[in-house]
Design a protein around this nucleic acid. Structure first.
Lengths: 217, 217
DNA sequence: AAGATTCCTTGATTCAGGTCAAGAAACTGT
DNA sequence: ACAGTTTCTTGACCTGAATCAAGGAATCTT
């Protein structure tokens, strides 16, 4: 996917005028990362925010004793590390590729320039508010729902209400994303398989037919 | 405290030019709320964001079965409900006064107008990014620390590293803010008192001398 | 000041999910 | 195809915190 095309279909870059978009495209540095490669570490200095073109990126933050709390999983078309814009010059989270990915680094100065455009600015603020809401929902989710519910919410949010999902990441990673230990997660999957609700084999998750209809979160 | 004076000393309103500030002041609707009074409910339609002048406001979101997850506690000088700006016309959380409070309602249209000012905009985006970081930290806190640690972090964040704190809210509210049940919280306080680390009597929390020095979070 | 709420404490009990351990299975690079 | 990782599963066990229950303290109301 080339950068120009990507920007065109990226939710809030597409509002840009064509020349504006070209400015962005020109300023972007394309970067490929392999699965498991780290894009930046928590605490790293940086000057750029990123736009994910292909693949999937996990953002997490270290807790005490190597524990990690997943902040979110970035999907293609989304940007991440916007915090670098004003806040400080260090990334507050670590980002690592869940699969081979392609991303574009957009220097902060360039972005500031773009923020002069009224439409762009509006979209950007909207985007921030959206993330804001997402994070508050995540807090509710982590504090008031159990692992099982969190799993289903994760699947719905991330892939939609499909009966067949190819998550493209390991069970361990999903466990992590729903905030559970691998062992706990494994046991949960076993329980669900026995109950006939879901099975995860050969990288594919199969939900029971009509599963989503009945569920209420 | 009058509105003009308030704006002057509010972190990111103070950057406004005097005439700009007057515009805001003129557009603001002063509102008093009594302790326990609800400012708006999750799901309510609304047009305004709020600036807290005096008092303390609790923002929370309902989980399943009446459970509530505290999103944050607003302190004087801070704004809340910014989400109303673009996102949608309904508040995503409930806000209730923890004490008698004074706040100013700022209509969204007016705010949009203000966003045309470059400085103001910059500050606003910075503010959003700050909250963003706060929320991600909250996620880490809730998922990787136990209630005790969360309590100390809460106290530090909210009141600073003092040896004597007057939280101005009930134990129940603090319990809630750190994501614990009142019973659990009560037991924790008992444990800490016995250990000589902290006692909470007559609305005042007294930490052991030098307490904050040693702690590491 | 009595009555009604709401808040706080303490006890007993339960449970989801974390921890430790140790194989089995699935990938990885060479 | 093989050794070497990493991931996955399963078992035994533990524990922090929720739940249920119930009495006492504080606060608000009239």
């Amino acid at each position: 996917m080339d950068i120009d095309h990507l920007l065109e279909q990226t939710a809030w870059f597409k509002g840009l005028s064509a020349p504006n978009r070209e400015t962005v495209a020109a300023a972007c540095l394309r970067r490929r990362v392999k699965k498991k490669e780290i894009v930046f570490l928590e605490g790293d200095r940086g000057e750029s925010l990123f736009l994910l073109a292909q693949g999937s990126i996990r953002l997490y933050k270290a807790g005490p004793g190597g524990r990690e709390a997943i902040i979110r999983i970035v999907k293609p078309g989304e940007i991440f590390a916007e915090v670098i814009l004003f806040e400080k010059d260090r990334y507050p989270v670590t980002s690592v590729a869940l699969k081979d990915s392609i991303l574009y680094a957009l220097p902060r100065a360039k972005f500031h320039e773009m923020l002069k455009g009224e439409d762009f600015r509006r979209d950007f603020i909207r985007l921030l508010l959206e993330k804001h809401r997402y994070l508050t929902e995540r807090i509710v989710s982590l504090t008031s729902y159990d692992v099982e519910t969190r799993l289903f919410r994760f699947l719905r949010d991330q892939f939609g209400e499909l009966e067949e999902i190819t998550p493209g990441m390991s069970k361990k990673d999903v466990a992590n994303a729903v905030g559970a230990m691998p062992e706990t997660f494994s046991r949960l999957l076993m329980k669900l398989r026995r109950a006939g609700a879901l099975k995860w084999e050969d990288r594919v998750i199969r939900l029971k037919k009509g599963f989503w209809k009945k569920t209420e979160f």
